[in-house]
Design a protein around this nucleic acid. Structure first.
Length: 264
DNA sequence: AGTCGTCCTCGGCCGC
DNA sequence: TGCGGCCGAGGACGAC
């Protein structure tokens, strides 16, 4: 599914859509809009104008519009981007892996005949004009040790503390890490995703390093699903590092796999 | 603040 | 063997 690495590829592809006058906008599925974004409003914001910049924060892609609100796109679980018939990725895990016109949720037509299309079979994605970018935490690809510390560091508040994984996946704390990346990062860091006790300074440094190196490595390999843990991420799977049978449970509401031997 | 249920569709697996 | 039907996967958000 599109996590931060995939959305960054979408953003790069979207640069091909910049500075091209928009002539038509189809928002085929009205329910695809969020925060009051309707087909009529989207058309009013886009037709006759052009995109000026392709940005990203976490998993949110942002296309600035000349003299207008920013166009925000969330890709959910199976969302894909197509510009002039070119797809950013060959196929997505958990998606049907093929392109069909009936799954196109919106289409932006350019005066030169090309088009930008948003394709989303399972429809978990959404479109939003002027999305609140400030609600998102610092971008995971840019996150500093200080960012990781403030997002996952010692909680001094009384009451329940969310497990580590829920905090890493909370887009308001750090933006961009999804379920598969989270499992891979904790596996590489040797940290138990369900842990609720505070991290010491060494552990925070280890987690920060694992975040950076995992993103870099998986990007080189081709995406979020290219982690070492991926193949074993099923009942009965074993730890690629020490051979122990992996444990699995719901952590922070998400299916989670981890190694009982080296993750603490 | 944290947790749970909801949205949506497809693939995989169950049992007849 | 074949097929109908059910469940679970994922990200984000609203409700408790």
């Amino acid at each position: 599914m599109p996590e931060i690495l995939e959305v960054e590829r979408y953003r790069a592809l979207a640069e091909k859509a910049l500075h091209r006058p928009i002539t038509k906008v189809w928002m085929i599925d009205a329910r695809y809009g969020r925060g009051g974004t309707t087909p009529v409003r989207l058309r009013a914001a886009l037709v006759g104008r052009q995109f000026t910049e392709a940005r990203r924060r976490g998993k949110l892609m942002l296309l600035d519009i000349e003299e207008g609100p920013t166009f925000g796109v969330r890709f959910g679980m199976t969302g894909g981007l197509v510009v002039d018939g070119q797809q950013a990725l060959d196929r997505l895990r958990y998606g049907p892996g093929v392109f069909e016109d009936k799954w196109v949720r919106a289409r932006v037509q350019f005066a030169d005949g090309g088009a930008l299309q948003l394709h989303d079979p399972r429809r978990f994605g959404s479109l939003e004009l002027a999305p609140d970018e400030q609600r998102l935490g610092p971008d995971a690809l840019m996150a500093t040790l200080a960012d990781v510390r403030s997002a996952l560091g010692t909680s001094t508040r009384a009451g329940p503390v969310a497990p580590l994984k829920a905090r890493l996946m909370d887009q308001e704390r750090i933006a961009g890490v999804g379920n598969l990346l989270a499992d891979e990062i904790f596996w590489r860091a040797g940290l138990d995703p369900g842990r609720r006790t505070p991290l010491d300074d060494d552990e925070l440094r280890t987690l920060h390093r694992a975040l950076r190196s995992t993103l870099r490595l998986l990007d080189r390999r081709g995406g979020s699903h290219m982690g070492d843990l991926m193949e074993e991420r099923q009942p009965g799977g074993h730890c690629p590092r020490d051979g122990a049978e992996l444990l699995h449970a719901q952590v922070g509401g998400r299916t989670t796999y981890w190694c009982p031997v080296h993750q603490h």
